Computed example of a mutant assay.
Amino acid sequence: MNKINLIKSPDKPTLKYPPMESALIPPPPVEIDPSWAIPSARQCIAWWDDYRMLDNIKSHSMLVAEVAIQVSTLAVESGINVDIPTIQASALLHDIAKSYCIYHGGNHSQLGAAWVMRLTGNPAISMGVLHHVFWPFEPEADKYFLPLVVSYADKRVMHDTLTSLEKRFNDLKVRYGKTDKIKQRIHKTFEQALHLEERLGKLIGVDLNACSLDCGRLV
């Protein structure tokens, strides 16, 4: 039998991965590119129907957008440079995949971010959708105002009613806290929301917990 001579591939460099316990590397600060399209409130609401959003989620999304606009308006009044139309679009679209995932499963923030990126081509809007459930990095409000304000606004709205963080998370524990693991996850998210509220409040000079957040109109 003839001997087959195998050609040895050249050695490849060894890839070194960071240890699993290492801290996540945060993304670059959010910067708005003037060339990115920003859909109007009317367009975002039309997409709700395209993606068969349930009526209760529509009501929730509308109020989340109004809260995000109000906090953003307070930021502008305090001299912070934020883009309110971009924040509005991200807040209106943050739950665009929620109805689909209720029926078919999946992560609604990840799927929603992918859909929103396809619809808008705007990574800033998509970033707010992706991280509205949980922000896995240090909540530096000056660098990441857009995704953080969308996340915070979502935490201040229980169904279609403005509420405190404590009441919002107590409701989540009752509805979803079926196991100790889930309860721990909800508590961790609650602690982050409190930290986020403090960071945003310090940035804009407002005690958000005590603020009535009289919601502004969509722009």
Rank of each mutant, 00 (worst) to 15 (best):
L148M: 02
V149M: 01
E166C: 00
K155R: 11
D95F: 06
K143T: 00
I84N: 10
G112T: 04
G177A: 13
P147E: 10
F145H: 01
R118M: 07
C101E: 11
K143F: 14
N81I: 08
T86E: 05
L111A: 01
V149K: 00
P147G: 02
R168G: 05
L172A: 02
A75T: 11
Y100I: 08
H94V: 01
P123E: 07
V116Q: 06
K183S: 14
V82Y: 07
P139A: 00
L111V: 01
L172E: 06
S109R: 06
A114D: 12
D83Y: 12
L93N: 02
V174M: 13
A153C: 00
V82C: 13
F134Q: 04
D160P: 00
V133H: 14
E77L: 15
A97H: 02
A153M: 09
K173I: 12
P123M: 11
L148T: 04
Y100S: 03
A91I: 09
Y152F: 07
S126T: 00
N122M: 11
K98D: 10
K143V: 02
G121C: 11
L93C: 03
S78P: 03
T86D: 05
Y103V: 09
S90G: 09
R156C: 05
I125C: 06
K173M: 12
A75C: 14
I102V: 09
V174G: 04
A91Y: 01
P139Q: 03
L130W: 01
G106E: 13
G79Y: 09
D95L: 12
E140L: 11
R175T: 06
R118I: 05
T163I: 12
H94D: 04
E166W: 14
K155H: 14
G128C: 04
V116A: 04
I84S: 10
I182Y: 10
S78Y: 15
M117E: 01
S78T: 14
S90Q: 08
F169C: 05
N170Q: 15
L172G: 00
Y103Q: 13
L119Y: 03
A114L: 05
L172R: 02
F145V: 03
K183P: 09
S151H: 11
K181W: 10
T120M: 10
S164V: 15
A141C: 08
K167S: 14
R118E: 06
A114F: 09
M117G: 00
V174F: 13
L165A: 02
E166G: 03
N107P: 02
Q110T: 07
A75V: 10
Y144A: 06
H131T: 04
